[in-house]
Design a protein around this nucleic acid. Structure first.
Length: 517
RNA sequence: GUCCCCUUCGUCUAGCCUGGCCCAGGACACCGCCCUUUCACGGCGGCGACACCGGUUCAAAUCCGGUAGGGGACGCCA
């Protein structure tokens, strides 16, 4: 008996599938084994150990951008992989050739990268595996676990409609299930011969045990008329061949799970564990969609959100670690676990996201923020060339902006001197006072060298003391002169950032404006 | 219609498995006060929930049953 023959005998004691090349493996206890030739050229059992090694995947379909729901699912997968030293795989589910686009793939990858979710394997494309799927379809056909169905779409639609009308479950009635005649010239689909009677159950890592009566499941189509495989079939083949151990996905897939399990069993594949993450809802508690505002991850980037803020927000949507709210990337990784993922859907709340974003802006690295701010400034036609140091500008705005967009908006005045003033705010002061303040401030600033913020503030206090003014009478007019409005950083901050020369120029401009009135 | 799932402050949630420490804790938002030259930051305080009904128990947010509401799925989409 040859070594290989001996091994196949050994393996035959376990579940070995398929009896061909690609997925030649078996289960031994909690481990997965596969025959492999060693350096000496003889076969040996290699333990793949994939039951203990965590392998997860994110499998979006490229029919649009990466939305926040998908991003959260990806994040949970990614975090679990990082937490357990597992492998995170990215797989593009593009079996629907009609709706899948290259642009969508790009958009998804862009979103993933922006959020900092790197993948260990992939991206794999299902469209690359069509021959593999075909092979397995044929296997099921040969084993009598699948059959050809010649029912037309119109017939099916009619039956479905009728069933619905009569209050029955609109499932396939099994017309072709026991059909014997061969008529391959006619178009056909391939259906899975699902077990009848009994139940299919699984222990969901998030929702607990979920049981479906097989009665509810019909013979699903695994191959279309045009010969392409369908989603439920592909996922099973892919997840099995990629040796996925935990399938974490949106809970809109719960209903697909029992049929997939039946497929795993029919194919002889080990069944992975499942974790179904509840949906993200809009403010009206309906499934999050475009009409709720932005759902694209990239849209959040463009609105001036930081990736760490969105990640932090997303991880807290459905998952918790006691009362903790702020998580650094490392903390997320070390603390994340699916057992702390909630079972109920959650509403996406932009207010809280804004709060987190403000937090990360406030505590973020100034230099990095300055870099990130650039595109938002140029979108406003602002050039930083020749103006104050952007780092200094950002520093004055960090605790005043919730988004980079807002920061850019508030930064404009530093680079573009005001061309008009908030007249309503100006009207609160007498013209004479305004002019006197301008003169006094100009004198004070030009007589002393610029120190730090505290020193400048002290100068203003001196102006007040010397003239018997209150701070509000001096600070506010100066602020208007420098920024054009009333909402701006502290006077000291502005003056220091703008520089004395520019400050005096702007005050002079204000004086001229007043004189012309 | 059928099946599956879900239900703690407006929102995100802790607590639920292992009943008493919970007349339910934290966070966002909101309101008020303080700080303050504006806007913010920050500090302090307030408002505010166990969907409902019944059962088990000395004791229930926690266990059991039912009801209601919400969501999802039912495709030759994924």
């Amino acid at each position: 008996m040859s070594i290989l023959a001996r091994w196949s005998k050994v393996l035959s004691k376990f579940k070995v599938y398929p009896p061909g090349k690609k997925c030649f493996w078996g289960e031994v206890g909690n481990a997965i084994v596969a025959p492999q030739k060693n350096t000496a050229g003889s076969a040996q059992l290699k333990e793949l150990r994939y039951m203990s090694e965590l392998r997860v995947r994110f499998a979006p379909s490229p029919t649009g951008y990466l939305h926040v729901g998908g991003a959260r699912t990806a994040l949970f997968n990614w975090l679990l992989a990082k937490n357990r030293g597992g492998t995170f795989i990215l797989r593009i589910e593009d079996t629907d050739v009609e709706r899948s686009t290259k642009e969508s793939v790009e958009a998804i990858l862009e979103g993933m990268k922006w959020l900092g979710m790197d993948w260990d394997e992939g991206p794999f494309y299902q469209s690359d595996s069509f021959p593999l799927y075909k092979e397995y379809v044929q296997k099921l056909l040969d084993a009598g676990k699948a059959y050809k169905c010649y029912c037309t779409t119109d017939e099916l639609d009619a039956k479905r409609a009728l069933a619905m009308e009569e209050g029955r479950k609109p499932k396939y009635d099994g017309t072709c299930r026991e059909r014997s005649g061969q008529c391959d010239e006619q178009p056909y689909v391939v259906r899975f011969r699902a077990p009848q009677g009994g139940v299919t159950a699984f222990d969901d890592l998030i929702k607990g045990t979920i049981t479906f009566p097989n009665e509810e499941l019909d013979d699903l189509i695994i191959q279309r008329t045009d010969g392409t495989p369908t989603y439920n079939f592909c996922v099973v083949i892919d997840d099995a061949s990629m040796r996925i151990t935990i399938v974490i996905r949106g809970d809109d897939h719960v209903n697909n799970t029992p049929r997939q399990i039946q497929l795993y069993e029919a194919l002889g594949f080990p069944v992975p564990q499942f974790a179904h993450v509840p949906m993200i809802l809009g403010a009206d508690k309906a499934r999050l969609s475009k009409r709720h505002g932005a759902t694209s991850v990239i849209a959040y980037r463009d609105m001036g959100f930081l990736p760490e803020a969105l990640n932090n927000y997303l991880v807290r949507l459905g998952w918790s670690n006691g009362d903790d709210e702020i998580f650094s990337r490392e903390e997320m990784i070390s603390k994340f676990d699916i057992s702390n993922v909630g079972r109920s859907p959650s509403v996406f709340n932009t207010e809280k996201l804004l709060w987190l974003n403000a937090h990360y802006i406030k505590n973020g690295d100034t230099q990095r923020l300055a870099g990130l701010l650039l595109p938002h400034l140029s979108r406003r036609g602002v050039t930083t060339l020749g103006g104050p140091d952007l780092m200094a500008v950002v520093k004055t705005l960090q605790e005043r902006a919730q988004t980079l967009e807002e920061m850019a908006e508030r930064a404009v005045f530093y680079y573009n001197a005001p061309v008009s003033y908030d007249e309503a705010a100006l009207a609160k002061f007498d013209k004479e006072l305004l002019q006197a303040v301008c003169t006094a401030v100009t004198e004070k600033l030009s007589s002393a060298p610029l120190g730090d913020i505290a020193a400048i503030d002290a100068l203003f206090k001196e102006v007040c003391a010397e003239n018997g003014w209150k701070m509000g009478q001096v600070g506010q007019p100066t602020r208007i002169a420098l920024s054009g409005g009333t909402q701006a950083p502290g006077i000291g901050e502005i003056v220091l950032t703008l520089g004395v020369e520019e400050t005096l120029r702007r005050i002079q401009k204000m004086k001229e404006h007043l004189a012309a009135k």
